[in-house]
């Protein structure tokens, strides 16, 4: 018990530190590393609770694939510079966010600590955990019998996701949104017309300046836009 407690405290500290790092550190790469720390901590906690298989795939999938993907995107797209987080353009976003976070935490804790078992409802009637043999065998049995449709559907989901990602990352030369697709009178159309009008104004203004270069008109009126 003492070993497990020690493991828990250590892993929990790593998790919390990592989580705080994700939120507080400014460099996206550091954020990603903090995330890995949390994921690792969670994996350790899984092991601590006997979920060996989940711990392994947690590391393989999350750390090995997902965060690596994050790092790829960060590095390849060149957004690995520190972001300016000092200025918050949205009024009240931060205090509200923190308040909401605290509220979620507080309410969850109240629910967990005061309600105990009642928060979870009834226990499921799948296979019990404490059976002889590795946990992956029991998990596999449940997945391939009771949840076989869900399992197959997630397979389809993954396939669709892969295809979607390929389509999304295909480089095209057309603009993302084909403005001509939108019928007259929609918001996009209105906005485009506004842009056109602005552009026209600019052209007009330029023309004006060019046409009457030596009148008294303030050149900055037309030229500086």
């Amino acid at each position: 018990m003492r070993v497990e407690m020690f493991t828990f405290l250590l892993a929990g500290a790593i998790c919390l530190g990592g989580a705080l790092g994700v939120v507080l550190l400014k460099n996206p790469v550091h954020n990603a590393l903090s995330l890995v720390a949390t994921l690792f901590g969670v994996a350790v906690l899984f092991v601590n609770q006997g979920a060996y298989f989940l711990a392994a795939i947690q590391v393989i999938v999350y750390a090995g694939a997902i965060v690596i993907l994050f790092l790829f995107v960060i590095m390849l797209l060149g957004v690995d510079r520190e972001t300016d987080e000092g200025r918050e353009p949205l009024v009240a976003q931060r205090p509200l966010a923190v308040a909401t976070g605290l509220a979620i935490l507080g309410l969850s804790l109240v629910a967990l600590l005061s309600a105990g078992q009642r928060a979870t409802g009834d226990k499921a009637d799948l296979a019990p955990l404490n059976q002889p043999g590795p946990d992956i065998n029991h998990l596999a049995e449940v997945l391939f019998t009771r949840y076989v449709y869900a399992f197959e559907i997630t397979a389809v989901l993954l396939t669709v996701a892969v295809v979607g990602a390929v389509v999304l990352s295909k480089r095209t030369n057309e603009p993302l949104i084909d403005l001509d697709e939108f019928p007259e009178g929609t918001v996009v159309d209105v906005r485009r017309r506004a842009d056109d009008a602005k552009a026209q104004d600019e052209v007009d203004a330029d023309a004006e300046v060019v046409a009457v270069p030596d009148t008294e008109g303030d050149p900055q009126e037309g030229g500086d836009d």
Binding site: T100, L107, V110
Partner: peptide, 16 residues
């Protein structure tokens, strides 16, 4: 998030 908090608050009060 605010909606979630409201839901959570509702659930928590129900638990009691």
């Amino acid at each position: 998030a605010i909606g979630a908090v409201a839901l959570l608050a509702y659930v928590v009060t129900r638990i009691g």
